[in-house]
Nucleic acid binder design. Structure first.
Length: 347
RNA sequence: GGCGCCGUCGCCAAGUGGUAAGGCAGAGGUCUGCAAAACCUCCACCCCCGGUUCAAAUCCGGGCGGCGCCU
């Protein structure tokens, strides 16, 4: 920042703190600690914890453990609904506004990088899913393969076709869907992308642990989840009429556990598989966050006093910078500035 | 000391004369309304030396290492 205070610092949007990181790193505990310290409210940023009844497998924080801190976007969707990134972006933006209006600090907590990006950088304001069209395109894919859709896409939207793998049916279908309902190629919509909280000042903190530490924690957590009745939770959901192909059953932990209940493999193998999938997932998450601009890294588990102290210091620094009118221009996420990411190292 | 079996990527493992499957682990990447999802890419001169052969991880000999049995 140079000495001349730019005019745009006059109207800074809300400060949003985000506690991100791989699975089982202690995000929940850290977010809670920050909320207690700064008078915050927590907004879930986990794609599966939004579903009602999916508690144990998502490691959702229980009511008793919330210590009076309001939590948003947990249990907001029915298991048979399809919650989406777009809906998350709208819901989370609304929550940010409401919390900020109350004079509280909005704290995002979760590991779904795509949802974080959808909120902070936005999605193009195009059409949502068109069920019939998708079904039809998927049928075509089943019959003639991804290459067929890919060729189709290339004719109407070469730019998207170049970006999407011929086997990536999901993205091919979406690109074609957007073209067919709007008459414009997907890539042409990108220019209209805006974040619903483009004015916000986002302080993104990533809790980072070595892969081996994550592996240990994951293994322990899987055992705990089984001990706490993961399988009973699934049986209850099934008993309540949630079909085995419901969206949240397709994700980590639940997918493998459901398969186990269907007799695909025994419990020991299932536990091992879940742990393995968690490790993979953690890796994908870190790959994602590494490329997300403007994040700061916290070394150490989220529940540790040292990590908490680091996080508190960073939030305080940001708060005092804002009080001084020094909100950095462009602190919103409309323009990624990867070079500005500040690595924090401490032992 | 003798006999037998074995030695292929960090781990498991296929291949038994034609130029190294696969899985796990590891690494990198894509991602704009399914993202805890989906998709892509990379990762071995086959223990060593010599021989046979147009060609050897594959056959032969000798080392070295491991395992088992015997005396």
């Amino acid at each position: 920042m140079n000495g001349e205070s730019p005019a745009r610092s006059a109207a800074p949007g809300p400060l949003v703190v985000a506690v991100l990181g791989a699975t089982a790193t202690g995000k929940t505990a850290l977010a809670l600690a920050l909320a207690e310290h700064f008078g915050g409210e927590i907004i879930n940023c986990d794609s599966t914890a939004v579903y009602r009844g999916f508690d144990i497998g998502t490691d959702k924080i229980g009511l008793a453990d919330r210590r009076g801190i309001p939590h948003h976007l947990l249990d907001v969707a029915d298991p048979t609904e399809d919650y989406t990134a777009a809906r998350f972006a709208r819901d989370a933006a609304a929550a940010v506004r409401a919390i900020d209006a109350r004079g509280h600090l909005p704290i995002l907590a979760g590991g779904t990088g795509f949802y974080f990006r959808a909120l902070t950088r936005g999605l193009f304001p195009g059409p949502g899913r068109h069920a019939e069209l998708r079904a039809r395109l998927e049928r075509v894919a089943d019959r003639r393969g991804g290459w067929f859709l890919h060729r189709m896409l290339r004719r109407v939207d070469a730019a998207s076709a170049a970006r999407i793998q011929p086997r990536d049916i999901k993205r091919l279908v979406r690109a074609l869907e957007v073209f067919f309902v709007t008459g414009r190629p997907l890539t042409a919509h990108f220019a209209d992308t805006t974040s619903l909280i483009a004015d916000a000042d986002v302080l993104g903190l990533v809790v980072r642990l070595p892969a081996e530490a994550i592996a240990d924690r994951v293994a322990r957590r899987v055992d705990e989840q089984f001990a706490r009745g993961l399988l009973d939770e699934i049986r209850a959901l099934r008993g309540a009429g949630v079909p085995p192909d419901a969206r949240p059953f397709g994700g980590l932990v639940y997918r493998q556990a459901v398969e186990h209940l269907q007799g695909v493999r025994d419990e020991a193998a299932t536990r091992a598989l879940i742990a393995q999938e968690n490790r993979r997932y953690a890796r994908r998450q870190m790959l994602w966050f590494r490329k997300e601009p403007n994040l700061m890294w916290l070394e150490g588990p989220g529940e540790s006093a040292a990590t908490r102290a680091d996080a508190i210091r960073l939030v305080e620094a940001r708060l005092s910078a804002r009080r001084a009118g020094g909100t950095p221009a462009g602190a919103g996420y409309d323009e990624p500035r990867a070079a500005d990411a500040v690595p924090i190292t401490n032992v």
